[in-house]
């Protein structure tokens, strides 16, 4: 079955992973900008990273017939450095016309601090001013509930935000309802330990239905599995769900959401 992985950090994966993804049915991915595992020291490091996301990775993906899209930002972990964050935000418009850029992301909170919230709001302002879609990172573990509620407060406090153009990622059992009931898209991140398993994602699909809901693998440099979406497809098949339902979550929904950005084929 063809599928789209809407949140996959391919800069931290090998070319072999692209081949495996293609064999598993992955036809497109979107790669949000994220933390590199260390704090970068200058705006030039981000400029090089954005060149990698907008030039090199699309070519690597294309070798295996996979379409590569991306989102740009400075992530929440590095947002504690407010001056660097502002330099990066000022530089992002240089890349917004690149043909694989879908919007601003993954912006959000990490430890739910004032500096993180300040830089989050400045990213949101950038997105609104440039009519960009937004991809949101919600914190992990004990910070997730508080951080998700804070993010939603900030988004809903801005009347300029079109909620149908915002994807809130890493939802789990205690946050999904707040995201969906307020009109945002929700992403479930399938991860071996700290996030959501394919089984729990299948539970949430059964509980809330497929409307504005999608799944991703994150596939970053931590313990993660870039082929986690095929695991979800298998789980849903085992439970007897229809091909139409599965296809809606893993293909149609990402396509519908991304189609609101100019670079994505309509």
């Amino acid at each position: 079955m063809d599928y789209i992985d809407p949140h996959l950090h391919m800069v931290s994966r090998t070319t072999d992973d692209y081949e495996t993804l293609a064999r598993m049915g992955c036809v497109a991915i979107s790669e949000p900008a994220f933390w590199a595992g260390f704090d970068r020291g200058s705006v030039e490091s981000f400029r090089d990273y954005f060149r990698q996301l907008t030039d090199f990775e699309p070519k690597r993906a294309a070798q295996y017939g996979i379409a590569h899209y991306t989102w740009l930002c400075i992530n929440a972990k590095e947002a504690e450095n407010v001056s660097l964050s502002r330099e990066v935000i000022a530089m992002i418009p240089e890349f917004l016309e690149c043909k694989n850029v879908l919007g601003i992301g993954e912006i959000g909170l990490n430890k739910n601090t004032r500096n993180e919230a300040t830089i989050f709001l400045e990213h949101v302002d950038l997105a609104v001013k440039h009519k960009q879609q937004i991809l949101i990172h919600t914190p992990h573990l004990e910070d997730k509930y508080q951080g998700t509620r804070m993010i939603l407060d900030m988004l809903m406090g801005d009347s300029r935000i079109d909620r149908s153009r915002v994807l809130v990622d890493h939802v789990e059992e205690h946050t999904i309802e707040h995201v969906l009931e307020n009109g945002f898209w929700a992403g479930m991140t399938l991860y071996p330990v700290s996030k959501c398993t394919p089984q729990r994602a299948a539970d949430m699909i059964e509980r809330y239905g497929p409307e504005r809901l999608m799944a991703n693998s994150a596939g970053d440099w931590g313990p993660s599995k870039p082929t986690a979406i095929p695991d979800l497809i298998m789980e849903l098949k085992k439970r007897g769900h229809s091909r139409e339902l599965i296809q809606r979550v893993v293909y149609e929904n990402p396509k519908t959401f991304f189609s609101q950005s100019k670079p994505f084929p309509h």
Binding site: L141, E142, D143, K144, Y145, Q146, R149, M150
Partner: peptide, 9 residues
């Protein structure tokens, strides 16, 4: 269980 293990909002 998730809410039990979460910081307050």
């Amino acid at each position: 269980v998730q809410l039990l293990m979460s910081r307050d909002y």
